[in-house]
Design a protein around this nucleic acid. Structure first.
Lengths: 211, 211
DNA sequence: TATACCTCACTGGTATGCCAGTTGTATATA
DNA sequence: TATATACAACTGGCATACCAGTGAGGTATA
């Protein structure tokens, strides 16, 4: 639970505006416009803008203005590549440790829901469970640095995740099968196989973005 | 070249203070003392503090104060693990692409300097070339996301890199051999071997920190 | 008309004053 | 003396006034 400071609130609200598309890439912002929009002074807003710039959402130029950055296809592909590096490592590590009963059942329940949403062809719900699946595995690997990075890229990823599935309706079926296979490899302690499958899985997503 | 703003200067100077040890973990800071120390107003200093907090160097608590965070052994080990994930991926990727002549000669020159410093047992210089070696490889992999992460962890790493070599004088010899072998694998297109060696190389560093 | 220039409204950057919350200490009270 | 309380000296959070730089539009000039 972050401190209920205005600067935190500003950051969250502005990110929400970005993720919901109310503020789109290419838009020009100004601190003073945001003052009216968020009903707070420039100080917390500036802090939030600094963070958003570090996150890569916007770009500030002294004496000029603030531009909302495009999440280019190229950038998205880079993120997928980063995920390949992190998550293949993660599943490999998990294969060499013993998952707790609780952890196993969390994944199992997640997978059964994935299966259901595949059958119902419920893409939005599946997308949520997909993200949760990856997120859980990363959490289990118990490395705060990696967890933090994952959270940093998660939001930008949300901007494109829907696109991946929109571009290919069969994707969620394959995705589910991949997830299941990865988890089975982990349980059997087959780190190399789990990593390879995860790499392939994410490579698929990356390719869709880069025709 | 970043804009020569005060907030950028504040960030750089404060990071320098942290890296040189003038400000040590456990120290208590306050915005107002830093105002005198850096001779600027609270505004750019607050901005810099926000960044340093995101970097993990300090922790701010509203109405209380600022504490310089300890880079725990555990945290350092996490960073090494993150490096394993990123850099094994990087060298694997490099093995599957063609390095330019220029890139090859950059590494070759770096390696020859490494060799020289090993022979002279010049640990500080070797440490620099070591960091440069890893940095260059990451740069060649041409993924801005990964490059950014590497830069973020680089500074924290510097706080412990010296320690790794201090704990084991034979380390730089082995390190050099590892580097050389990794590069040879890359040139031969042996991605798996390069990645495995890199993993082993970094695992060695991690283990030294965690007896 | 074409061009040079000037003005003015805007930008983010910076300095600073005030606020509420926290904490250690000195004082009043039992 | 032990404890409760009040106060004072801090903290970071926030609002805001002012600054220099920028760029667009109008105006004066050729």
């Amino acid at each position: 639970m972050p401190a209920p400071t205005l600067k935190e609130k500003a950051y969250q609200e502005m990110k929400k505006l970005l993720l919901t598309g109310e503020i789109k890439p290419g838009d020009f912002l100004s601190e003073r416009t945001l003052v009216e929009r968020l009903d707070m002074s420039r100080t917390p807003i500036r802090s939030a803008l600094d963070r958003l710039e570090l996150d890569g959402f916007i770009k500030q130029s002294p004496q000029q203005g603030i531009v909302v950055q495009e999440l280019s296809i190229n950038k998205a592909a880079e993120i997928y590549e980063l995920r390949k590096a992190l998550e293949s490592f993660v599943v490999n590590k998990l294969s060499n440790m013993e998952l707790t009963k609780q952890q196993r059942s969390i994944i199992e329940e997640n997978l059964s829901l994935q299966k259901r949403y595949v059958e119902e062809n419920d893409i939005p719900q599946f997308t949520l469970k997909d993200a949760e699946f990856h997120h859980q595995l990363i959490t289990f690997a118990d490395n705060e640095e990696i967890i933090d990075i994952n959270e940093q890229i998660q939001d930008r990823l949300n901007l494109i995740a829907v696109k991946v599935f929109k571009l290919d309706d069969q994707r969620i079926i394959v995705s589910y099968d991949d997830h299941k296979e990865i988890f089975e490899h982990i349980l059997k302690g087959q780190g190399e196989k789990a990593a390879a499958k995860m790499t392939e899985h994410l490579e698929y997503g990356r390719r869709i973005l880069m025709p």
